[in-house]
Design a protein around this nucleic acid. Structure first.
Lengths: 254, 254
DNA sequence: GCGTGCGTTCCGCTGTGCGAGACGATGACG
DNA sequence: CGTCATCGTCTCGCACAGCGGAACGCACGC
């Protein structure tokens, strides 16, 4: 029963004002009388709201969602750093956390001149083809990358990297630089610079980025600001970057 | 069963990292084996996450919460206006919507020099003793005010208005000015200026405010900025303020 | 060792959840 | 207008899903 209810909740889509009972039944496969009954209970609790024939997700879910520690703690600590980065660059700022083989956007500060970026606060994107995701893969536990490779790499644009060897090599380079870039791998016209944010455990627990038009974003110009903000946020979270392997010939950053 | 699950979800509190099964049982009254079973199902779905003996709300609820039309549509439209107001005043900015006899905070941009304000994004406060709530009562359907009066007015600070007649008179004044103020009615040391935000239907669908220390906030200085932002947001939402009653002797604002 | 509290599992039983079908309302179309 | 399709709402027999007291092993403090 609980699964059925959540299946119904999962049938609501971004950007929709309202959905009818019939449409929810079609999407979820829950029979109409059952869906009708469950929606009635969900409505009692505030998880859905009803307007005539239309249902929409209810405010109670927003309230619950704001209690989620994984986003709340991060968002509270990160807010000033993100605001600073937004003000310094005037480009769209993102903050995301890893979840399975994807990233979940915890915060998005959209720039007014921003391109149509397929990200959304509370939304998900595959990790392997986003700057944020690659930063998280490069500095996360190896099992995270393995899960991504096991799940398979799917081409989303002509520039998506779908060869496991190429991705691994890119992640190694990201580890050397401490920065990830994205050039139209997840969406045409979009570029991004992302840096990992470290928690007390030593792995990247989040990543933050600047996103803009690929033919306009000066990645070299914004990269130091992104990394600065990420390092500052890492410190505020009680984390710090891992030690560089001694044999690395990476450039000195002292 | 669904009610039980939601009761368990409702037992999580703001600011907690994790809660044990035993504590959830104590708070919710759901017997331990039942709670254990339900939490297991909630975990499968991502609504809760587990770490040893600790449970916490899961990312899936954050994702769902970000789909809620009532906050999403408002937040997307309001974000630039709120950011402008924050930058212009450098004080804490709030945006809230009405729900029953309370306001729910949709967005909060905290100022670094802000007092300890008992508000929280996704949190609730009574309407009758908050600037935001009073703005919503003054410009909302009369049934909303009636529900508040029926529920009763409870003193929270020495300055809380608990006489229905005084509250109604204050709301009439707010309707004349188009602005609400709060002086330590919800929390000691806190002052606030709030303005209603109108939707296409003519009633206030939200309110926005500036909040600060009561002995430091120049309400007269920030009030025009608050009202400007609220009127701009109203226009962006396809709404506008109601006509002034012809018999009113309020000051002309042409 | 003992006591307390924890999370996990079991299993008989019952009442809750289920949904095909029926029904009235609505809207589009000829 | 009549017909058809789709909508949301309700019914009710029944079976099985949900329930939770009790038991158990583990951890911790005295």
């Amino acid at each position: 029963m609980l699964g059925r209810a959540f299946t119904l909740l999962g049938a609501f889509r971004p950007g929709e004002a309202e959905v009818t009972l019939a449409e929810l039944t079609r999407r979820s496969g829950v029979p109409k009388p059952t869906a009708h009954r469950l929606l009635g209970e969900l409505e009692e609790w505030g998880a859905v709201e009803r307007n005539g024939r239309g249902y929409r997700l209810g405010l109670r879910l927003f309230e619950l969602g704001q209690l989620v520690p994984r986003q709340r703690e991060l968002q509270e600590t990160a807010a000033p750093f993100l605001a600073d980065l937004f003000e310094a660059t005037r480009e769209t700022v993102h903050l995301a956390v890893p979840d399975g083989v994807e990233v979940v956007y915890v915060q998005k500060l959209p720039a007014s001149s921003a391109p149509e970026i397929p990200s959304r606060q509370g939304g998900r994107m595959p990790a392997y083809c986003t700057g944020l995701g690659k930063a998280l893969l490069a500095f996360g536990p190896p099992a995270r990358l393995q899960a991504v490779l096991d799940a398979g790499l799917v081409r989303r644009t002509p520039r998506t990297v779908v060869a496991p060897g190429l991705l691994s090599a890119e992640l190694a380079e990201i580890r050397r630089r401490g920065l990830a870039e994205e050039h139209e791998e997840s969406a045409v016209g979009i570029a991004c610079v992302a840096a990992p944010v470290f928690g007390p455990g030593g792995d990247a627990v989040a990543a933050l980025s600047i996103t803009g038009w690929s033919n306009r974003l000066h990645t070299a110009r914004v990269a130091p600001a992104v990394q600065t903000a990420a390092l500052a946020l890492s410190r505020a979270l009680g984390g710090r970057p891992p030690r560089r392997a001694p044999g690395n010939s990476g450039r000195t950053r002292s």
